[in-house]
Design a protein around this nucleic acid. Structure first.
Lengths: 133, 133
DNA sequence: CTTGACCCTGTAGTTGCTACAGGGTGCATA
DNA sequence: TATGCACCCTGTAGCAACTACAGGGTCAAG
């Protein structure tokens, strides 16, 4: 028990206080002990777990994926294949998003290049958006 | 007045019925007339406006951006520079997201490659996520 | 002893829908 | 005529992942 306040924990993990409480509410972070004034008092275990959560979130894992990762990580004797699988699935997600965004970018870029100025009534962007407008 | 039902309008624009009603609720699509049975009856103007909305959404514009585009597009004599600006801002957003995702992909890829199998306790992925875990 | 920064709970807002529940309508068919 | 089915209506609650209050209590410094 090192007795961090919620604000200190937040600062240490770059997490807003409300977010920490939110993680507690949804059962991702265990409820800590309380001081006599009913303040949350966090220990080293909370700090490391929240660090894990934030790092995984930064890498784009959903809260559900983070939960799964935490479950997997807690069993040290388990084969790490399942962790690898989760990471690879997430990688595939990212690749899909990249492809989508790239296609979008191309289309929007073509649209923007088609605009040669003038008034809205001649604007190719507006025209392209509303084919029968 | 061509008298489309909400279902027909939805089919024509590839929009779910609930989504059409949602657009009406938030004031993006004008409330149409009603039949004697209180069914919504849409006209050509609704069809073209909803087409515009859906196309812009497909291109990744937010509803707020769509609203702005619709406002701009309604004034035909206006210079189209403002439309161009909005499109360019959106393009910049896309580029930022692309850069973020690419960085993420690189980081995650490095993480995945570091895993050489074995148990969780030796797993570099878990290790990298929880530096002091 | 007061000011300000922190803490507490609980609830509602954000974005863009989606999914009911609990009803009414319209058309075809037996 | 009844009955079934697909469609329509309103209103509300849910999703992710927070964020932002409102309306209070606590604590340390000056």
């Amino acid at each position: 028990m090192i007795g961090l306040t919620i604000g200190q924990l937040g600062k240490a993990t770059d997490t807003k206080v409300e977010t920490v409480r939110y993680y507690e509410r949804i059962g991702l972070l265990a409820a800590p002990g309380r001081t006599s004034a009913n303040y949350r008092a966090y220990g080293a275990d909370h700090l490391s777990r929240l660090s894990f959560i934030r790092r995984a979130r930064d890498l784009g894992f959903s809260l559900d994926q983070v939960r799964a990762l935490l479950d997997l990580a807690s069993d040290h004797s388990r084969d790490c294949g399942s962790v690898d699988m989760l990471a690879n699935e997430h990688m595939a997600d990212i690749d899909r998003k990249l492809a989508d965004l790239t296609a979008l970018r191309r289309e929007l870029s073509a649209l923007i290049n088609s605009c040669k100025g003038g008034t809205i009534s001649q604007c190719r962007i507006v025209e392209a958006l509303a084919p029968r407008g």
